[in-house]
C-alpha cells in the first residue's frame, strides 16, 4: 500500500500511515484552513487499509492542539478504526497527552466514550 507521510506545519498535523512498518500516527497541531480536504485522503487511505489490515493496528494520536472543526474529522478517523475492530481486527488507539494538559487528556477520554475501540491514555512530559 502507498505510504502517507505529511509533514506537520503550524496549522496542520504530522501524519504517517505506513502499513509496511505498522506506523499510524497523527501528531502536532490541527487547525487546517480546509479541514475536510486535509482529512479526506487519510479517511480514504484507512478505507483501503481496512480491507486487509495488519494482525494488530496500533494508532497513535499525539496532538498538541486541535480546533473544534478538526474534532469532527478526528472522530471520523476513530470511527474507521472502530469499524475495523467491529470486523474482528485487533486495534488499539493510543492517545498521548502532555502530563500538564488536562484538556487534552479529557478530549481523549471523551473520544474513548464515544467510539467502541480499545483505547489507551499515555501521558508524556514536556520540557
Amino acid at each position: 500500500m502507498e505510504v502517507i507521510k505529511i509533514k506537520g506545519t503550524d496549522d496542520t498535523p504530522n501524519v504517517v500511515l505506513d502499513a509496511e512498518t505498522g506506523t499510524f500516527e497523527i501528531s502536532g497541531r490541527s487547525l487546517p484552513e480546509d479541514v475536510a480536504a486535509f482529512y479526506e485522503p487519510i479517511i480514504e487511505w484507512l478505507d483501503l487499509y481496512a480491507k486487509s489490515p495488519m494482525a494488530k493496528t496500533v494508532f497513535d494520536f499525539k496532538l498538541e492542539y486541535f480546533n473544534t472543526a478538526s474534532s469532527k474529522l478526528l472522530l471520523d478517523v476513530l470511527l474507521k478504526l472502530e469499524d475495523m475492530a467491529d470486523d474482528g481486527n485487533e486495534v488499539l488507539v493510543r492517545w498521548h497527552y502532555p502530563d500538564d494538559d488536562e484538556d487534552m487528556q479529557e478530549a481523549g477520554e471523551e473520544y474513548a466514550d464515544i467510539v467502541d475501540v480499545p483505547f489507551e491514555q499515555v501521558s508524556y512530559t514536556v520540557d
Partner: peptide, 12 residues
Amino acid sequence: NSVQKKVFHVMV
C-alpha cells in the same frame, strides 16, 4: 502554559 493554551483555543 494552561492559560496560554486556553487563550489560543478561544481565539481560534
